[in-house]
């Protein structure tokens, strides 16, 4: 560092550029490693970002991003006037809120209680088993759900045998169950996996805190509530910000498997709509506009959640 500043003190532009090329030569192998990655990002991340302009154009399959005529905000106003608009907004936000309200705290609670298990072999075994669903694909999980929830499936068998239902119900054929099916299967898949970070945070809590609490006569719940939970609040805050910013990110992989024409009125979410309009109906500009609408709201939610969390807890992502 010191060498650099004395060198630039009496540097002319000529010297600077010479130094630049000398450094470039020194670092040429590093550049040979880095540049392919930069080019990859330019192509696969930045060209699609540039491609967003077709949301403001009338793009058709023959022309390029450039040539297509401008259309202004037409596609956005079309979207807001679309009969599907209120339905997909309701479904997207509804499913995500359910997942947030139930799916966010459950891994924390699971981690808190798992932490109270004394036998470490048993604890590790529970952990390993609880990760399992995370490693199954949504196709397989969806396949299991569809099998179980069908009219001849296990759930109906049990409910009818127990006398709770008079006759079998096609759960995935009825819109009113879809949000819950999506939420429960999502929690099932993520419960163990999402608890990893919390468990790690808990293991970092100072043991002495617990010991003095025990001396003071604090019971298990008291210790969980007054020591463990506050100790991991920073982790919780950051994951909460990320969860809120993903509110419009309905899980495409999941919904695509579970949806069908019968439950469309409660399973049509933004991501699915973009896929149907863009890929299936080739309305590229329209679908891009819908996708952009989603990204912008997601970004705003991220900033908002970050701001609110910082105000409330003093902890934030950035």
């Amino acid at each position: 560092m010191g060498v650099k500043s004395t060198a630039s003190n009496n540097a002319t532009i000529f010297c600077n550029s010479k130094r630049f090329f000398r450094k470039l030569k020194e670092q040429k192998y590093l550049y040979m490693m880095v540049i392919p990655g930069i080019i990859w990002m330019l192509i696969f991340n930045y060209i699609p970002m540039y491609g967003i302009i077709i949301a403001f154009k009338d793009y058709n399959i023959i022309s390029s991003f450039f040539e297509a005529p401008w259309a202004g905000l037409k596609h956005f106003s079309d979207f807001f006037k679309d009969d599907w608009f209120p339905i997909i907004m309701k479904n997207t936000v509804g499913i995500s809120l359910l997942k947030l309200v139930f799916g966010f705290p459950l891994p924390i609670i699971f981690a808190l209680f798992l932490n109270e298990i004394r036998n470490s072999t048993f604890k590790r075994t529970v952990q390993t088993i609880s990760y399992l669903p995370h490693f199954l694909s949504w196709v397989v999980l969806g396949g299991i759900m569809i099998t179980w929830l069908s009219e001849s499936g296990m759930i109906n068998e049990l409910l009818v045998n127990m006398g709770i239902l008079d006759k079998p119900v096609a759960f995935l054929g009825e819109p009113k169950y879809f949000w819950w099916i999506a939420t429960i299967s999502d929690i099932w898949k993520g419960l163990g996996w999402n608890s990893i970070i919390y468990l790690a945070a808990i293991s970092g809590v100072d043991v002495e805190l617990y010991e003095s609490a025990i001396v003071d006569g604090a019971g298990r719940f008291r210790r969980m509530w007054s020591i463990t939970l506050p100790s991991i609040s920073g982790t919780i805050a950051i994951l909460f910000i990320l969860a809120v910013s993903g509110l419009l990110n309905s899980n495409f992989d999941q919904i695509l498997v579970l949806r069908n024409s019968l439950n469309a009125s409660s399973s049509e979410v933004i991501d699915i709509f973009v896929y149907r309009m863009g890929i299936q109906s080739a309305r590229f500009s329209y679908a891009t506009a819908v996708g952009l609408f989603k990204s912008v709201i997601a970004l705003m939610l991220l900033l908002l959640a970050n701001w609110v969390t910082r105000k409330l807890t003093g902890k934030s992502l950035f």
């Binding site: 192509i43 991340n45 060209i47 699609p48 540039y50 491609g51 077709i54 863009g278 890929i279 996708g291």
Partner: peptide, 11 residues
């Protein structure tokens, strides 16, 4: 931030 599904598909 990403370009989203459709621009990626077109690319």
């Amino acid at each position: 931030f990403s370009g989203g599904l459709i621009p990626t598909f077109l690319l």
